[in-house]
Design a binder for these strands. Structure first.
Lengths: 67, 67
DNA sequence: CCATAACCAGCAATATATTGCCGCTTTGCT
DNA sequence: AGCAAAGCGGCAATATATTGCTGGTTATGG
């Protein structure tokens, strides 16, 4: 799980919901400029930014012990 | 899932592994100052910082669609 | 083909996480 | 109780994510 992978997950999820970057960014309270960098895996987003996007996209982040 | 919750998870995991903040921070390549804020939920960590800590702690972060 | 929407990326400015330093407090052990 | 280890948190400096702006490129519908 790294930046690039997360970017892909977010982008694919957004597309499957058929919403634009502009709309997602707007609803999530994130700038479209940041969203683009995140989807491209070109930045190291803050947790809150990621959580805001996930919330809108119906995605959940979980942390658990590796078995 | 928010900052506070993540801080608690990290701290409990670290304690269960019986390592100090200093050691964890050192191994993970994160400053102990940041680790403290993160465990306290007082900061909004960057994804990479979180991933570095999780790696050392044997924790994995996953993102999936909410059913 | 044309027009429009959607996406992309460089740049400078701003906001904020991260860091190192320091002294203090709490915890745990003998 | 006394000591040492571990944790805590303010502060200023630094690094870097985020933002708004701008102009360009690519996809898409009529």
């Amino acid at each position: 799980m790294d930046q690039k992978e997360i970017g892909i997950i977010l982008k694919e999820r957004r597309k499957s919901l058929k919403i634009t970057q502009l709309d997602l960014a707007d609803i999530a309270g994130v700038s479209v400029r940041s969203l683009r960098d995140i989807e491209k895996g070109k930045t190291n987003p803050e947790l809150e930014t990621l959580l805001n996007l996930c919330k809108v996209l119906g995605l959940e982040i979980s942390i658990k012990v590796i078995k």
